[in-house]
């Protein structure tokens, strides 16, 4: 939040330091609030009542409804990788490496990141908007007034659903991308099916698959907690909900990209 404009206090060292300190404390505080919010939601997953019905609905929303967009994104990502890879590798006479190139890029990096971004844009934004509207129309207060733990009911269920759905969508993303690249490579680029699959099977190891899945768990947690946090704490009416939604999507996608680098560096 921007501070209201104060009369210019003049360039004094104490003012400069004071401003710096103020922002630092604010920043640390907001990170802390987010971590506490997420931690409580994670802990509340294991607490009764389990609200399986809500988890199921959210699983449908995060998972089933994301299949189409994930497969579309994955197919074109896989095909463009195959086209570009074929073009470049042809110069070295190694077109046979298109399969491994596509499969490893997808499994390790592109599937978790792109599936995460697609789900953040589709389901994460909707989550923030829903929770924000519930906050504006005092439905969250109503839940609390009825002694229903609103965080558990709204946030924990979504966190659990996302942690299940996002890795599955990521795996589907990889498979769809590899299959699309295979169809393109064999039907249009004229590769032998056996060369493509043989290369893929030889080069892909379990560590590649598990790296992508580990990433997708982290991204799922990011998507669910950030979009719930922004919606749950939305203020300022209809514009406020819009602002919260934008912030949630921007923060989630940025953190997915930064987190991907950090995870790759840590896990590889």
């Amino acid at each position: 939040m921007l501070e209201p404009l104060r009369p210019a206090p003049g360039l004094r060292l104490t003012n400069l330091l004071g401003g710096l300190g103020h922002h630092a404390i604010e920043g640390v505080g907001s990170i802390g609030r987010f971590v506490v919010f997420s931690g409580r939601a994670a802990v509340a997953i294991g607490r009764r009542p389990f609200r399986l019905r809500v988890v199921l609905e959210q699983l449908h929303f995060f998972g089933n409804r994301s299949i189409a967009i994930a497969v579309l994104t994955a197919s074109f990502t896989g095909m463009v990788l195959a086209l570009q890879g074929h073009d470049t590798l042809q110069r070295f006479g190694s077109e046979s490496q298109v399969g491994p190139l596509v499969a490893l890029s997808l499994l390790r990096e592109l599937a978790p990141v792109l599936a995460g971004i697609v789900i953040a844009a589709r389901a994460g934004s909707a989550t923030t908007a829903t929770l924000g509207n519930m906050r504006m129309t005092e439905q969250i207060d109503a839940l609390d007034a009825m002694a229903i733990d609103s965080r558990q009911y709204l946030v924990s269920t979504r966190l659990l659903a996302a942690m299940i759905a996002v890795p599955i969508i990521t795996a589907l993303f990889s498979l769809a991308g590899i299959v699309a690249a295979f169809v393109l490579a064999t039907q249009i680029l004229g590769q032998e099916p056996g060369v493509f699959w043989g290369g893929v099977e030889r080069s892909v190891e379990w560590v590649d698959i598990s790296l992508g899945l580990k990433k997708s768990f982290v991204f799922a947690a990011l998507i669910a907690t950030i979009s719930c946090y922004r919606g749950y704490h939305a203020t300022g009416g209809a514009t406020g909900v819009g602002r919260a939604t934008t912030r949630a999507v921007v923060e989630t996608t940025s953190l997915i990209l930064v987190g991907d680098y950090v995870l790759t560096a840590l896990l590889m």
Partner: peptide
């Protein structure tokens, strides 16, 4: 439909792991 989704997901992971990941 959710059950089908989860089952398909597990099948895909299993396929990737066993067929491609050795």
């Amino acid at each position: 439909s959710v059950g089908a989704f989860v089952a398909a997901g597990l099948a895909i992971v299993a396929y990737l792991a066993i067929s491609l990941g050795n």
